[in-house]
Design a binder for these strands. Structure first.
Lengths: 124, 124
DNA sequence: CCGCATCCATTTGGATACTG
DNA sequence: CAGTATCCAAATGGATGCGG
């Protein structure tokens, strides 16, 4: 049966996790840390994200145990972010998703353009 | 080198795609259609989503070519949604992500609780 | 049954200014 | 350099009522 109750129960948990790591920036930060630690402004430049959103995203990822934050009290200060073991375990899924994104980016654009043209015709 | 320019250029495209399928509901709808076509209210009940959001999500997924919509002009009306080939190609990545979500749901909760407790101590 | 339109509360996110 | 705080605009999302 396609409505097996376990899948239904899973849905809620999956939803919760996706609401956490499925926001606009989290996956991209994980992606940027795939090859090792990065500094705050390195991430900012690479992702073209506002200071505010990077700050919030990093805090949430740290809170969820996905990244670690290491503060060096030098002058000027230096803060490095890195993936935790839990964060490392997300690299696989993220890699799969990003590869799909790259492979199908244009297919989506094409479908979208076709849909919009259909809608425009219907309106005429 | 971890700052290879291709990865930087990729970032933007990945971001665009994730902004599309990475919203709160899209992945769950894909997940719900993994075993074949479903009707509007079936999805609504299964996902515990508001009518409005399901409607919007289905429309966007159709626009992006990920699902198909088949309308039966019966009385009462009947509308079935199904994955397109492009949507089918997302099943793999979505499966990987949902399995990670299920496997690490509790680890995230634990990390979050620990972080919040630390913050509470620091405040005291 | 399916789904759009409207209203309204909540959330998100950019811009700017300021601190250690 | 690495943030936090504030203000404000825009997007998101639920509730309700209506129409095919």
């Amino acid at each position: 049966m396609h409505t097996c109750p376990e899948a239904m129960g899973h849905c809620k948990k999956i939803n919760e996790v996706l609401a956490r790591v499925g926001d606009r920036w989290s996956v991209l930060v994980i992606f940027s840390l795939r090859n090792g630690k990065r500094r705050f402004n390195e991430l900012k430049r690479e992702l073209n994200i506002s200071q505010r959103m990077l700050s919030l995203t990093l805090r949430d990822l740290e809170r969820d145990g996905l990244i670690s934050r290491h503060y060096h009290p030098t002058i000027p200060p230096k803060v490095e972010y890195d993936l935790t073991d839990l964060g490392q375990s997300l690299r696989g899924p993220v890699k799969v998703m990003t590869e799909w994104a790259l492979a199908n980016h244009e297919a989506i654009d094409t479908a979208r353009a076709a849909f919009d043209e259909q809608a425009a015709e219907a309106a005429a």
